[in-house]
Design a protein around this nucleic acid. Structure first.
Lengths: 220, 220
DNA sequence: AATATAGTGTGTATTTTTTACACTATTAAA
DNA sequence: TTTAATAGTGTAAAAAATACACACTATATT
């Protein structure tokens, strides 16, 4: 038996202190005019991972971004025209890198736009379920993955990092405890540089040191 | 574009102090005579979850078992005849419930047999990778899932429970600390019953109390 | 009846991790 | 020079995790 095979992408970014998801407004039936996750069919000889990169590029103009499989959604009734198996992936982009590039690249969608995960519109297909499942996983893995750093520029302040944690976990954290833990982990590199262009005391900048992180997590 | 669509199952059990996986010996090309995960094609109008239940039943004679999706494996080259997308699931069964029932139910396989995860044969397709990924997930979630109890009979001793933990984690645990933690969690129900038929002091029996567990984990 | 065996069952001290909590320092703008 | 805004810092208490050793009990064997 054969099935149609698509990819849907949960593309996150961080802006205005909130965790945001990129959605597209559909211009085709079924679910015409509904908001949906960016998604499309996988080509015959295209690797799944390549397909995810392609859609990410088509929607955001970005390349070479970390991405993770969430799982397959294959309900016979998830699509009105019969089973379309979709594999959901999630990726994280930096809002500022993307904001000027986003535009609909195909006639299948009318526009693309960011929504805070706390204020999503009604969504086509089972996309709401996909997002919720993805969010849960993001929360669960926050301490074991490099995900948080994907939201931030190369150089960032500890306050920015804490805001990302808070947006993902959906709760406030204690500043001193947060810094203590981060310092303890020891995979941030303190730079001899501070923020610029702020009208208050400039914060020190840090870099994420991937090598130290991998030692910490125990990657071989 | 369409693709063939299969399910592969990682079926675990616990026997002789070891975590075991059920494998089948293939009787068809490609990979004839190789060991492989139990797997098959999903029918056109069959739900994926139903398909997993079906294969579990066909291989073990068991019904209504906890199962979990690991993810989709869709490499263009994973099957010599072109892309066959497989969704891997894992399930856990009680060895004693199964041991008399296992037999090949189709001509596609010659025999089915348990292998300790620490001593797997060479496997067809990407099945070795699937098992390793599944094992990692089992370890990661051991404290947040009810998986360990799926390996055990309804009534079990603390030593048995500890052995399952040790088999999954691949390391020994301290008996007193283990019991302290279990007692602390408080979702085991101590029975007024002890083991029978043992030639040494009989151990107390316990039951897993799912309701208390769910409160503990915070399920709504 | 004595003994060997095998697994059960328990307590305490130490270290590590988590949590709670409030003030001073720096900078830019007014 | 004052104001407004955010950066940056330490300590104590509580909770959780770890390390560690011996006595108890049921049974089988002699």
């Amino acid at each position: 038996m054969q099935t149609h095979f698509t990819i849907d992408c949960v593309i996150y970014s961080f802006n205005e202190g909130k965790l945001q998801v990129l959605l597209t407004e559909r211009n085709e039936y079924p679910y015409k005019d509904w908001w949906a996750l960016p998604g499309f069919f996988v080509d015959k000889n295209e690797e799944m991972e390549g397909a995810v990169k392609r859609i990410l590029y088509e929607h955001t103009g970005l390349k070479d971004i970390f991405m993770e499989q969430l799982g397959a959604f294959a309900g016979v009734k998830r699509h009105p025209q019969g089973r379309i198996l979709t594999v959901a992936f999630s990726t994280i982009v930096k809002y500022d890198d993307v904001k000027s590039k986003i535009k609909p690249m195909t006639s299948y969608m009318r526009q693309a736009s960011w929504f805070p995960v706390t204020a999503l519109p009604e969504l086509a297909f089972d996309h709401h379920q996909i997002i919720q499942q993805s969010l849960q996983k993001l929360k669960n893995n926050i301490h074991y993955s490099t995900a948080v750093y994907e939201f931030l520029p190369e150089k960032f302040t500890l306050t920015q990092l804490q805001q990302v944690y808070e947006a993902i976990l959906g709760k406030e954290l204690d500043k001193r405890n947060f810094r203590k833990k981060i310092a303890n982990d020891g995979f941030l590199k303190e730079l001899q540089e501070v923020q610029k262009g702020v009208s208050y005391r400039a914060a020190r900048l840090y870099k994420f040191d991937k090598r130290k992180f991998q030692k910490h997590v125990g990657v071989e």
